[in-house]
């Protein structure tokens, strides 16, 4: 049976200030897959992800997404949250529930339990009432990841969500993302620098380089289905 595409890019070109960053990108990402975007600095990984979620306008082509009926969850690459803001981890995570709650309602018991469960999974249960700005860089990244995970979004767009994590935490996070794909049929678009570990869990690897995107099969494709394993080919 053919896999149902959830995101489709047809001849997409993106330009900044008249300069082409990506040209003629054709990409199909099926539902429930983990797509890894790799490439050198400045290749356009972030631009591509931002275009997919609608933060960057495209110059030509077409991006087909289900985001009008089901919003994606997004973890940006940069440190976007100003440390001046006096907000707790819980408040940041609750932002992820906006699509379900709207701007008025407070999370019910079920939603709070869901938040606690994901926080527990990523080892953040003790941080829930702490001030976000006082956490380490890695812990802040995990909090933003939790915000994306609790949102219930079908598609998670994660731009280098493990760049400030230590090796062990990175493996835990990637394992969790693999699990989210396999068990909850969520589609994950993940931009990463350290590809050695990540290719072992990805279904698709998209090489972004020289203004082009090339789709490849991951090197250790057969290993990923049961969860995170080290590539041993």
């Amino acid at each position: 049976m053919a896999e149902l595409p959830i995101i489709k890019l047809e001849d997409v070109s993106i330009a900044y200030n008249g300069q082409t960053v990506l040209a003629d990108v054709n990409l199909t990402i099926p539902k429930g897959k983990l797509a890894l975007f790799v490439g050198p600095n400045g290749a356009g990984k972030t631009t591509l992800l931002r275009a997919i979620v609608g933060l960057v306008p495209i110059r030509s082509g077409r991006i087909v997404t289900p985001f009008k009926r089901s919003r994606p969850a997004y973890v940006p690459q940069q440190k976007t949250i100003d440390p001046l803001y006096p907000v707790s981890v819980r408040r940041i995570v609750q932002m992820g529930l906006h699509w379900q709650l709207g701007w008025w309602r407070r999370p019910d018991r079920q939603a709070r339990a869901q938040i606690d469960q994901v926080l527990q999974w990523l080892g953040l249960a003790d941080h829930v009432n702490k001030v976000f700005a006082e956490l380490s860089g890695g812990t802040r990244q995990k909090v933003l990841l939790v915000r994306a995970l609790v949102s219930g979004a079908e598609v998670l767009v994660l731009d280098e969500p493990t760049s400030e994590l230590d090796e062990r935490s990175e493996q835990e996070v990637l394992k969790y993302l693999r699990l989210v794909c396999t068990e909850q049929s969520k589609t994950v678009l993940l931009a990463l620098h350290g590809v050695a570990v990540a290719t072992s869990i990805a279904d698709l690897v998209c090489q972004v380089e020289h203004r082009r995107v090339q789709m490849q099969q991951p090197a250790c494709h057969k290993l990923h289905k049961t969860g995170f394993q080290t590539c041993t080919q």
């Binding site: 969850a73 997004y74 940006p76 932002m95 906006h98």
Partner: peptide, 15 residues
């Protein structure tokens, strides 16, 4: 607060 806190993420979330 959400809009000021993280403009991009709140836009993607539908705010």
């Amino acid at each position: 607060l959400d809009s000021f806190l993280d403009r991009d993420a709140s836009y993607v979330m539908g705010l």
